[in-house]
Every structure is written in C-alpha cells, then in structure tokens.
C-alpha cells in the first residue's frame, strides 16, 4: 500500500503541475485527497513514542529473574536487534518452533526474565500486558526499518509453516464464507475507500507485511501484526485466533516469504 500511496501522490503532484497519464487522470478527487493525507501522515509518526517505550522495556530489568531482554536471541544471536525483524518468522533451535516476533518475545520473557507468558497471551490488546508486547514490537521492528525483507523458508518446519499459511489464506468459513483471499486475493480492489493489498503477490505482501506494526491515526492506537491479524479474523466473522497461535504465525510466514526482497517500512502509519 505504501508504494501505491507514493505513486498516487506523485500523480497528484503531476496533475497540479502540468500533465498526468490517462490512468492517473481518471483517479477521482476523493482518492487523491486521501492519498495526500496519508502522505502527510508520514511525517511525525507517533509510533516513535511507542518505539521509545519499547526500547526502555527492552533494556530495563524485570520479572522474577530481574533481567532485561538485552540477551534475547531474535534469530541473529543474543542481543542482536538490528535487522532481526526483517528475517522473521523463522525456525528457532531452542524451541524447535517457527516463531514470529511476538511469540519469540514471549519465549525470551519466559526464559530470560522468568515471566509467565499467560497474561500476555490472554489479555486484551488494549490491556497493559499487551501494551508491553506492542511497544516491544514497535521498537524491534523499527530496528529493521529500511532493511530488505529476507524470509525464505528452508528448514522443513519453515516450509511446512509456509504451506499451512497458504492453505489458511484460502480457508473459507463462517457465516459470510470469508477467507483472507476474499479481500486480499485480487489485485486493485478496495473495501469502501480502503485499498486492499494483494497478498499472494510480492508488492502486495510487502504492503501488508512490511508496514505493520503501525500507528492507526483514526483510533490513536499502535497495532502489532498480531493485533492486525486478530482484527482481520474478527471482520472475517471467524472465532478469535489465540495470540501467537500457529495459524497467525503460518499466515505471517506466508506474507513474509511472499514479500521477501521488498523493503521493511516499520513501524508504519495508517489513517
């Protein structure tokens, strides 16, 4: 979506300057206005406030073991945060699981800090334990901003996770017969005025995967990828996905691998 926005704004500027291609000239004024607004939001992203909070959480000793998360291994070795988010999800030897950022953070909180992950899994996204998770996700994702997404399933469990994610993407169910693909399986469509990224394609997958966690201006909330997926399932009229469950990690693997090679633009900002 980010790419589409910048293209749209470029077109908007071209219109006001001299000329535009026929395709862009057909865009209606409302669409152009929305795109200009989104572009304006890029400056001064309140996600920075959450990154600061997350960095402090990362570095402050906490939990029964009074330890910080600074020795957490996010896949590039203990303590390496820079570039780690662009390479997740991945298989971890110590847990023998494929993990996304948020499930890996839970592992570190449990092993390094001695914390019980249960309240972090079960609390509402607006409750304090999840606020910690989201701030941490904002911080870690910010340390991959501008990096190339590099997720290529190699380990058998990574490959299986990708397969499961693809099947989940197309799995229709519930009273509305919706799957992820109902909204994200065609190119160039939108819900109301919201452009929908086409997740099976590289650009679309990057527009989705590469821009979360993101600050949502209309709600005044910072959302992690887990929250984003949770609300997708709500609108799909599905039951609620368990936080960091395999279905959410499988979809994350599907998106991240599809987006591989594109640029990470986290944390993002949305209308």
């Amino acid at each position: 979506m980010v790419d589409r926005v910048s293209v749209g704004v470029a077109a908007f500027l071209a219109v006001s300057a001299v000329a535009a291609t026929a395709a862009y000239a057909q865009k209606d004024a409302a669409q152009e206005g929305i795109e200009a607004y989104r572009e304006a939001l890029q400056d001064g992203n309140p996600a920075e406030l959450y990154e600061a909070t997350g960095e402090e959480l990362w570095k402050t000793p906490a939990g029964p073991k009074k330890a910080s998360l600074e020795q957490c291994d996010l896949g590039l070795g203990p303590g390496v945060v820079k570039g780690a988010y662009a390479r997740l999800p991945r298989h971890f030897q110590d847990t023998d699981r494929v993990q996304d950022l948020e499930s890996r953070l839970l592992t570190c909180m449990e092993t390094l800090q001695g914390k019980d992950p249960k309240p972090y899994v079960e609390s509402a996204f607006t409750a304090p334990p999840k606020e910690e998770m989201i701030a941490l996700a904002a911080y870690v994702s910010g340390q991959s901003k501008g990096d190339a997404i590099a997720v290529a399933p190699k380990h058998p469990k990574e490959q299986a996770m990708y397969d499961l994610g693809k099947r989940m993407f197309y799995y229709q169910s519930g009273p509305y017969d919706f799957s992820c693909a109902t909204c994200h399986g065609q190119e160039g469509t939108r819900i109301r005025l919201q452009d929908l990224p086409y997740i099976p394609g590289t650009k679309g997958a990057a527009a989705g995967w590469g821009s979360w966690p993101a600050y949502r201006v209309s709600a005044g909330q910072m959302w992690s990828m887990q929250w984003r997926l949770n609300d997708c399932f709500r609108q799909q009229r599905f039951p609620e996905p368990v936080y960091t469950s395999d279905a959410t990690i499988a979809l994350s693997m599907y998106m991240a691998a599809n987006a591989s090679g594109e640029t990470m633009k986290t944390p993002g900002i949305k209308r």
Binding site: D43, G44, P46, V217, G220
Partner: peptide, 8 residues
C-alpha cells in the same frame, strides 16, 4: 487536537 499530537 488529536491523541499523541504532532506539531511542526
């Protein structure tokens, strides 16, 4: 003014 205001 919005939540988490930005001023430039």
């Amino acid at each position: 003014i919005s939540k988490n205001p930005y001023l430039a």
